[in-house]
Nucleic acid binder design. Structure first.
Lengths: 137, 137
DNA sequence: CTGCATCCTAGTCGATACTG
DNA sequence: CAGTATCGACTAGGATGCAG
């Protein structure tokens, strides 16, 4: 396995399907449930404090939230604002760059909410066709 | 339609942000890079054989491809067609349900390809502002 | 060609405790 | 309140090898 592929020429279009394209790395980093849910939550509810975010994205641990939000901040998608008060107040909000992505992520969330009954039904049918088919035939 | 596995009352909308909600499980299952890339690839290139898919989604191992594609099939998003020939020929294609999702996933991929330069630039700036104070290499 | 089974490492993730 | 640090369980996921 080679280790260096950073050599990206400007004339080559970025391609998420290419394993060694920088855009693939960006895609892979964003394509996890916590990052996507955080983006969607910030888009839906607007600026939120750390604890608010942890509540709105139900189930996320502090560690994962910290880590994901850090990555998003580093990538220029999210703005982290620290208010020098006591107790400390830290607010996270979408930057323009992040908003563009978040809008698209939200459509995925909407799709899932609208179609998960169909997905679950399909699953049931799939599993059923497996377990009993052997018996019947 | 047969009864649902999960008791879903109409007055309780599915919510991907809720840790306990069935739709969250569906969301979490789809929110990984291989599933998303496979959906996007099937949308972009149409029906593909196993090996074609492995080539178009560069970097995926046979194991992960098999596993992801199977999950997508189970969820009713992808149709797996086995042609009884020798050597065997298996073709994967999007079902209507999957196409709806894939269309939205593609917009994420497009966004990443269009904006990863900005993301990478933001990263550089972020990292610079952190550690570079002591190292100007 | 497709895909399953096995092994095995390395990273993920949660829980807990601690700091500023 | 908002993190950081550490540990440990877990599993994602790659590398074979084999079978249909």
């Amino acid at each position: 396995m080679s280790e260096q592929q950073q050599e990206q020429r400007p004339d080559l279009p970025l391609d998420v399907f290419a394993a060694f394209c920088p855009s693939r790395e960006v895609f892979a980093e964003l394509a996890d449930k916590w990052s996507l849910l955080i983006l969607a939550s910030l888009h839906r509810l607007g600026e939120q404090r750390f604890s608010e975010l942890q509540r709105s994205v139900s189930g996320v641990s502090r560690k994962m939230l910290t880590q994901s939000v850090r990555t998003l901040e580093r990538d220029g998608l999210v703005l982290r604002t620290v208010h020098p008060e006591v107790p400390p107040r830290v607010v996270y909000g979408l930057l323009p760059l992040g908003r563009g992505l978040a809008e698209r992520v939200v459509t995925i969330g909407d799709w899932v909410e609208a179609n998960s009954p169909a997905v679950i039904a399909a699953r049931a049918g799939f599993d059923e066709g497996r377990g009993t088919a052997c018996e019947v035939a």
